[in-house]
């Protein structure tokens, strides 16, 4: 009983939750703002990478492969620290939000790009030929025939990557961007109580669990259809 109460005080302390809630809530909004910035930007960048990859020229493809593999190889945190702590040495002052957006853009567009490329390549050539034979231009065939099918084929991977991006935003705490985890750690170090971190964890879980469930269903269907 004693230990249960101790646990409650350490991890589910109502008093502390009430005191910390304003900064936790502001952290939550920052996290959302990050997700809503990085995901669309990354998708756009990835789409550009995937579309450029359809150009049948080595001069275009090789730089793309280098870009994609390089930024997939870098741990995102390393990229982030490099941009945030390194760029000022080169004379570029950059805000934490901009550093995070840029770092995650490089990382995320590589992943989205690789996924969309695989999706486009999964569509049989006959689809383009059929579309072109009805008079559609190259770009029309890509937009109306290939891309919709490609996206559907790789939808689980796209969702999975989006989940990863959402989780990635917690790294912004390392460069002192006041998102959810950063605020929780602030509150935790002020109160020496784990409740704020517990609260942040619960918020992440509630926010992302539906995505995990959806994903797990889609993945089972994917592997089963192989």
């Amino acid at each position: 009983m004693e230990t249960l109460l101790d646990l409650r005080d350490a991890f589910f302390n109502l008093d502390i939750i009430l005191r910390a809630s304003p900064i936790l809530i502001s952290g939550f909004w920052m996290t959302l703002k990050l997700i809503l910035t990085v995901v669309p930007l990354g998708l756009l960048g990835g789409l550009i990478v995937a579309l450029l990859y359809t150009v049948p020229s080595r001069a275009v493809r090789w730089p793309l492969i280098v870009y994609v593999d390089l930024f997939r190889a870098f741990p995102p945190l390393v990229l982030l620290v490099f941009i945030y702590a390194g760029l000022p040495f080169a004379g570029y002052e950059i805000s934490a939000f901009a550093a995070v957006s840029l770092g995650f853009f490089l990382n995320t567009s590589s992943y989205y790009g690789e996924i969309l490329r695989a999706g486009i390549e999964s569509i049989p050539r006959g689809q383009v030929e059929a579309a072109r034979s009805t008079g559609l231009s190259k770009w029309q065939a890509m937009t109306w025939v290939v891309l919709p099918q490609a996206v559907r084929n790789v939808l689980p991977d796209l969702i999975s990557n989006t989940l990863e991006v959402a989780k990635l935003t917690s790294l912004a705490s390392v460069v002192a961007l006041p998102e959810l985890l950063f605020q929780a750690r602030q509150a935790q170090s002020l109160t020496f109580n784990a409740t704020p971190i517990m609260a942040a964890a619960i918020v992440y879980f509630v926010l992302l669990w539906p995505l995990v469930r959806l994903l797990s269903r889609l993945e089972h269907r994917m592997i089963a259809s192989h």
């Binding site: 989780k167 917690s170 790294l171 390392v174 929780a184 879980f205 995990v212």
Partner: peptide
């Protein structure tokens, strides 16, 4: 453990 960001788990 799929939903929580790894850094959150480490910090916790």
């Amino acid at each position: 453990f799929r939903a929580l960001p790894p850094l959150v788990i480490i910090v916790f």
